[in-house]
Write a protein that binds this DNA or RNA. Structure first.
Lengths: 189, 189
DNA sequence: ATCGCTTTTTGCCAAATGGCAAATGATATC
DNA sequence: GATATCATTTGCCATTTGGCAAAAAGCGAT
């Protein structure tokens, strides 16, 4: 839980009273590999923070292919903003890709924090903006590159993910087939 | 300029005094087609809002190819956040893709607004979060699709862009060559 | 060690896309 | 209207990537 507080404090200042209040609301939850944190079609009801493990967000495209939209590593927030904020059904699955340990806040708890801790909203805004910017910066450059370059960029950006998740997840993240990715890896060696 | 105020007021409430102050700081600027709003290597010094025309953000990849990262249509903010906030050199060019009319704020003016108008920061945060979310939602799905599907998605998302910008810009946005895109268009007809 | 299950690699061929250069079309200028 | 310039389309062929199925490899349970 300390990692979570440390993380938050990078984005703003909180006094001990405020930190204690946050800890009161926080629940530490474990998810087994393949379990869902939230599912498409349901309204996202919680905000999470990854203490340990890798979470991924995925969806099914028109052709029914499962696409990994992005990976979320340790020390990052997990929240389907669109669904959580607007209370509308989510369009994506959020799944533990490995066994995971998360800090979780229910909608009610989260709202209480926003209402009680004045700097909380600003801190959350900063965290979310940063995460969104990171997502854009990671996604945008991929489309312009060939499959090999995409994979190399992936290794650069997620050096700790590649050996912890199935090849197929990486392939769908990169928009290539599993067998192409396998061949690319062979060529790189 | 009215469009700008209307846009802002969707994200929060301001009184007339505050609106007048914003208008005092705002400068309306015209950019000719192909002129740069900001350039790679320079620290981004202004925040803009597109009143009329289409702006694009682009960069050169490792192979020296010019890649369109995204298009910015009327009624959207134009700002290189990373560069503007942290005062570091930008990595991208922001260019008027058509003749454009923009509302522009210098760094100094923008900061004065942030310091003077209490709700301004929250409003700006909301606007920026929304824009970032939109960028992620537009970019992410492209990588998983073939060239034809990407183009159709592009038409869906930017129905008003395709006839106002060169084919090559659209192609590089979609990560395909200009000639492939030309062939795709032929097949669709 | 063996079995059963899942993941990854590989072979074969088809389809999609790229590269290059020439042809065509569009537009502005004189 | 002719010309110069730039954008788009097209032809030809090479390269990359996909689709499918089988083989191989990894891994946990017994």
């Amino acid at each position: 839980m300390k990692e979570f507080i440390d993380y938050i404090l990078q984005f703003g200042t909180l006094n001990q009273h405020q930190i204690d209040l946050i800890l009161t609301k926080a629940t530490e939850l474990e998810f087994n590999k393949d379990e869902y944190f939230s599912e498409a079609g349901k309204v996202s009801q919680q905000v999470g923070f990854v203490l340990d493990g890798i979470v991924r967000v995925c969806y099914y495209n028109n052709k029914g292919e499962e696409i990994t939209k992005y990976f979320i590593e340790e020390n990052n927030l997990v929240v389907d903003l669109e669904s959580f904020d607007n209370e509308i059904p989510s369009t994506a699955y959020v799944q533990a890709t490995t066994d995971c340990k998360l800090v979780v806040f229910s909608r009610k708890e989260w709202k209480e924090l926003l209402d009680t801790i004045i700097p909380w909203e600003a801190i959350v805004h900063k965290i979310i903006s940063k995460a969104l910017r990171q997502k854009v910066e990671r996604r945008s450059p991929l489309v312009a590159e060939d499959a090999t370059t995409r994979y190399l960029m992936f290794l650069d950006i997620y050096p700790n993910v590649v050996n912890r998740v199935p090849l197929s997840y990486v392939a769908s993240y990169l928009g290539i087939t599993q067998s192409s990715l396998s061949r690319i890896r062979k060529n790189i060696r």
